[in-house]
Amino acid sequence: MTQLFQNLHHVCIVVHDLEKTVAYYESLGVGPWFDYPKKGAYVEFDVPNKAASDAMRYKCCDIDNVQIQLCDPGSLDSPQKHFLDERGEGVYHLGFEVADRDAAEAQGRALGLGVVARGKRTDGSGFCYFDTREKAGIVLEVRKS
Results as ranks from 00 to 15, higher is better:
A51F: 00
A117V: 00
D102H: 14
W33F: 15
D54T: 13
K20P: 00
K50I: 14
L84G: 08
K39A: 11
G88C: 06
A55S: 14
H82L: 05
K144Y: 00
R57F: 01
P37Q: 14
G88A: 11
S27Y: 05
S27F: 07
E44C: 02
G90I: 05
V91G: 06
S53F: 14
I138T: 13
Q3V: 04
E141P: 11
G126D: 09
A23I: 07
E105K: 14
Q67E: 08
R133A: 13
G31H: 08
T21K: 12
P73N: 02
Y42G: 00
R143E: 00
E19G: 13
Y92D: 08
V91E: 07
K135M: 02
Y92K: 01
G40Q: 11
G114V: 02
F96K: 11
P73I: 01
M56H: 03
E44I: 04
N65Y: 13
G114M: 06
V139D: 07
R143G: 02
K120Q: 04
A52P: 11
R121C: 04
A41M: 11
F45N: 10
A55Y: 07
E97I: 11
N49L: 10
E134L: 11
V91N: 05
M1C: 02
G137C: 08
Q80L: 14
D46P: 03
N65C: 08
W33M: 07
Y58K: 13
F130H: 03
D62R: 15
Q67K: 14
H10W: 03
C60M: 15
V22F: 05
F5S: 02
F96H: 15
L28V: 01
C61K: 05
D64P: 09
H10R: 04
N49D: 12
A106Q: 13
A41T: 01
V15M: 06
G29W: 07
Q3K: 13
Y129V: 00
V43G: 01
V66I: 13
Y24P: 01
F127T: 10
Y92M: 04
A117W: 07
R57G: 05
L140R: 10
Q3G: 13
D62A: 14
N65A: 08
L76I: 04
A55Q: 09
H93D: 09
G137D: 05
N49C: 06
V115Y: 03
R57D: 04
A55D: 10
M56P: 03
C71T: 09
I68E: 04
I13F: 00
V142W: 09
S53C: 09
L113A: 08
K120C: 11
F34D: 12
R101N: 13
K20Y: 00
G95Y: 04
Q107G: 01
R109E: 15
D85S: 14
A99C: 01
Y36N: 07
G119Q: 09
Y129D: 04
V22R: 00
